[in-house]
Amino acid sequence: MIGLLLCLPAALILAAGFVWPVLLLGRISFNRTTDMGAMEEAWTLETYAKIVTDDFTWDLAWNTITLSAGAAAAAVALALPVTLLIRSAPPRWRGVLALMAVAPLLVSGTARVVGWMAILGDQGMINALLTGLGLTSQPLRLINNLTGVRIGLTESLMPYCCLVLIAGLSRLDSRLEEAAATLGATRSRTFFRVTLPLAAPALAAAFALAFVLGVSAFITPRLMGGGRVFVVATEIFDLALETVDWPAAAALAMLLLGTLVVAMVLRGVLAGREAPR
């Protein structure tokens, strides 16, 4: 009872800050847009029908899923060694290293993108180095395209993966790795046969979080895609703030939200089945 009462403030904030806006958004998605762009109050599924039957929507969905799945996988793969390093560091360094791993979260997405331009741009550090060494004559196209978004998204998801993995691997008993060593396993075999399988749930959780964040990512695709990368989030932005078609923006947002909710529930069910108790 006390526990429920203590949850009340959070529940109220969630209701006011999340549930209510989502309900409003849902309402707007049933409105109609006239051919000159004005929004009319209505209860119609026209907008949904138009979105679902448009091939471009499915291209968007495919782009979004492949992009975020790839970036999430890369982020997890890169976060794992970082996390293992933190785990093997002396205890008094662990906190500092963990903080460094998640420090990018403290920098605004926009500022990070500006940094990426300086590094990845046609006249950026990497291309200056490559052309300076005579390795390439034409600059490598590392930004304002899908490559740029992949790099930027992977980097922006890594801190979240680190957070999840640090928490997940802290419960991994280091005696298990010692036991493997005493049984004759080299470091690499210990990693692949013991550490990695035991880290699998944490890796899956990190991937799921990164994937969801990647699907809803807007700033990175927008600022690093050079207008060449179309994902659901950038399309919602264009619909809401360029063409001012709110019903379409709302409907697409609701479809995205619905898909993510279904995906999370499915994952929960699958994970629950895998690990009883």
Partner: peptide, 19 residues
Amino acid sequence: AVQTFDPNPDGYTLILNNQ
């Protein structure tokens, strides 16, 4: 020939930054 179809923060800044 186009570097970006979505200049950020805007085209003027990209010119001043030699982009």
